Amino acid sequence: MTKVVAIVGPTAVGKTALSIEVAKAFDGEVISGDSMQVYRHLDIGTAKVTPDEMAGIPHHLIDICDVDERYSAAIFKHQAEQQIEQIAGRHHLPLIVGGTGMYLWTLTDNLTLGRDHFDAESAQIRQHWTTVAKEKGEAYVRAHLAQLDPAAEKAIARGNLRRVIRAIEVVEKTGQLFSEQPHLEAENDYLLIGLTTDRAVLYERINRRVDQMMAAGLLKEARWLYDQGGAELPAGKGIGYHEFYPYFAGEVDLQTAVEKVKRDSRRYAKRQLTWFRNKMPVHWFDLVSGRDRPEQINGLIHDWLIK
């Protein structure tokens, strides 16, 4: 089982900087978990890591698509798993870094995309057993899985409640044993590190980042995307780009468009935090305020790696 560290959290919270330090400390390579950084030519608005920021650390799944190509969670999962295998084969630590929650979830839960695991029935089953676990504990839920699928219960590591609930979901919804799913044995072991900070501070950082992007040439980048087809392109609906289309069309002034980028970015950050807090077992740290220190994160990773 390959161990993988994921660094997640909202935009503008410092994931890139932390990932470089972690990669240096643990001989790691970075796999981008951002749905927009896959696109060539979209550098400023996606806050894409620069060659200088990479500091010699290999980065993967960046600049692999043209703006008219579709990219999806299923494609990401396939490519990320390939990269994980290759990085581990080089005896390096795979690091998934990004804020696209669905992409990260496909990996950590090893979802079989193409089947519908996101419908109301699945959500209801997961919510029920999550509530049961809170009320009666993981042991109770594991005992239930042991009755349904003993092999799956034995194969899932202690403490991986999310995986236990996933196994119950598969059995209850499909009638098929989770232990007979071909992906079970190939599952990677993920440690999720989340960065956050006080909301007011985060929102100010987002506003400031947008101003910095404007100074760096975001408007020119957005105009280029608009001229390629804008909202008609798979890459054309990204935050930091589509807000400028009404400006280019002469419908709003520039300041209005910039303020909309800031607002949409803040709202996206809120959705990111909600996603990661509700769906994934993240270890949270606040490096922005100084409440936590990078040494704590390195210590957590070190202890996890030697288990």
Rank of each mutant, 00 (worst) to 15 (best):
H59K: 06
V171P: 00
A235S: 11
S179M: 06
M214I: 15
Q86I: 14
V171Y: 12
L104R: 08
A55H: 10
R162W: 05
H144D: 12
Y39L: 05
G290P: 00
G229H: 11
K77L: 06
L218Q: 01
L111I: 15
A80G: 04
R166A: 14
Y268P: 03
A167N: 05
H92L: 05
L148V: 04
Q176H: 13
A73E: 04
L273G: 02
A235R: 00
R223D: 07
A249T: 03
V258G: 00
P246E: 01
V210F: 11
E69R: 02
D66L: 11
H283C: 06
E180C: 12
L218Y: 00
A152D: 00
H128E: 09
E172Q: 15
H183D: 13
Q147E: 15
E251L: 12
I57W: 05
T196V: 07
L93P: 01
D264A: 12
D119F: 05
A269K: 00
H59Y: 07
P246T: 02
S179A: 13
C65Q: 09
R162C: 02
Q255K: 12
M102N: 02
A47N: 13
G175Q: 04
A139Q: 11
M214K: 07
L148S: 09
V164K: 04
V288R: 06
R208S: 14
D303M: 12
Q127H: 14
Q212F: 05
K262E: 02
D198K: 15
K77Y: 04
E29H: 05
E187C: 12
E295D: 14
T112C: 13
G290T: 06
R115H: 14
A249M: 06
D189T: 11
H283G: 03
S19I: 03
E232Q: 15
K262A: 07
A47W: 08
A88Q: 03
K48A: 04
D211M: 13
K3L: 06
E259F: 02
A17E: 06
L192E: 01
K220L: 08
G299L: 04
N188V: 02
Q37N: 10
E21A: 02
G230D: 00
T130I: 08
E153Q: 08
R166Q: 15
G194I: 08
R40C: 12
A23N: 10
L195Y: 01
Y190F: 15
R293V: 12
I75W: 13
S72P: 06
I7N: 02
A231F: 02
P246N: 04
